[in-house]
Nucleic acid binder design. Sequence first.
RNA 1: CGGGGCGUAGCGCAGCCCGGUAGCGCGCCUGGUUUGGGACCAGGAUGUCGUAGGUUCGAAUCCUAUCGCCCCGACCA
Length: 581
Amino acid sequence: MRASQFFISTLKEAPTDADITSQKLMLRAGMIRKLAAGIYNYMPMGLRTIRKIEAIIREEMNAAGAIELLMPVIQPAELWMETGRWQKYGAELMRIKDRHDRDFIVQPTSEEAVTDIARGEIKSYRQLPVNFYHIQTKFRDERRPRFGVMRGREFTMKDAYSFDRDEASAAVSYDKMFAAYQKIFARLGLTFRAVKADTGAIGGSRSHEFQVIADTGEDTIAYCPASDYAANIELAEALPLIASRASPMLELTKTATPGKAKCEEVATFLNIALSVTVKSIVLAADKVDEKNNPLPAEIWLLLLRGDHELNEIKAHKVPGLDKDFRFANEAEIIEYFGCKPGYLGPIGLKKTVKIIADRTVANMSDFVSGANEEDMHYTGMNWGRDLPEPDMIADLRNVVAGDPSPDGQGTLAIQRGIEVGHVFYLGTVYSKPMNATFLGENGKPQLLEMGCYGIGVTRLLGAAIEQSHDERGIIWPEAMAPFTVAIAPIGYDRSVMVKEAVDKLYAELVTAGIDALLDDRGERPGVMLAELELIGIPHRVVIGERGLKEGKVEYQHRRDSAATVVDVNEIAALIKNKLSA
RNA sequence: CGGGGCGUAGCGCAGCCCGGUAGCGCGCCUGGUUUGGGACCAGGAUGUCGUAGGUUCGAAUCCUAUCGCCCCGACCA
């Protein structure tokens, strides 16, 4: 492509409403332009990258046996009522009406549509397994769109849906997609990690997120450098840090801790380790009677070590809290504990509450906790001696770096990631309400076993940039770059020597099928080079009279700190060689 | 949804408090000089000051409403 025939529109300064690096760089490089909150135009430069990503996804999906189709952006509400998601999805689901006042939605995902196809078309087990996918525009009316294309409202997603005759076969389909995703993200040139993820209401163990590693990621990943264990922190299992409870050494003592409400403050004040303190978290589970009238909420006390933090997803798995819970309000806390928050603990309650100890807390001894009296804490607290054993022991906390790995091999490390892919076993959650069945070998109808597999195509742009950029701009992995090679002539329009050498190289690269951009715009060298770096084209050849007189040109990879002088006769071969490597 | 902030030229901003013919830098156009890291000189174009009302002789400026955008929060006792 000749730059003069293309559209390059860079910005020296990013608009002030851009908040993160990838968004600023995409705006500056002319890849996107904002049209509304969370809604972007994809400019020619950005679209080239999207197309490259899509091509790799298609190749690998097809290679894995998935079949492409295309489902509509606008879908009838009835389908979504069948699965109950019309009610459940909430405000994120964009609802619209047509001229006849009929309800429609703008798809945030396509389980309903694809299940409708399946129940209409799949009649026999002989047609299974099958995996349909499409690459389509999605809309989720995020309550707060931000981070540019990373959390936009309109975005492009590749979503695939597998249909199988039974769970064993569905597991095979799942594994195939898992393997395909590994290949896709590797081919895209990203540093990523497949992590175990929460399965939410669906349950089971088959759910993995593919996380692009980046310090600015919204997700936290726990992984074990010594093994292949990796999980979203929401899910990562926290083992007890104390193997067994030691015998009490200290007497239970009420100690004044004036004005010290937080564990950190108490530890500092008493000159003890934070890991000796226990924090109290009070939850409330709302109850109703048979007639749906509200009853007083059930109050729970969760105990965590002072240096640990609550994991709400885990709390949601505790029997009794699994329906729903909220944080107790101050009135409830005073009613049950006789004290305002800050000095709460498990001893001396006004009314009985359910006490759940985190696994680590359950094995602590001589610990410090609130005395349910303002400005007072207890030290030397011991289970069994000073208070009854907890009603329940559970894994309630987020893992922290240095925790033992749940697979028993080494310790966990923590890093940040950006979720770009998710594979999920669905079972019959959609086929059941939609009555999507096939005839089995026994001649009887059976529910389709499903799986779903998503890749955030447009989010990948942002994720790649977050992972790979410098102060000059984007550094694209080769496979995603809008152009693979930039040819930067110095004086293309005023030096026959330069023009000839440049045209020759360009023709040769094009013939070889290499995606080269010849910058023939006639910009001054400084502007041209700065823009090419901002755009992030990985390979660059600078050709000017100065070098050409010696028969030389300059090659520089976007990551190189300096250019390499190359014989003009060898440059094409050098690039071809680098690209095939 | 709660709190805060901002809407003035394509982008970045000033002007607003204290009402009186709308400015700066970059970018853009023309001509010239330049040409190996975001050039220089000269000339030029570009605004319903987010929108709608109101106050006033007069509103970017004051008042009201409204729309848009951004940030923080909506767990950590």
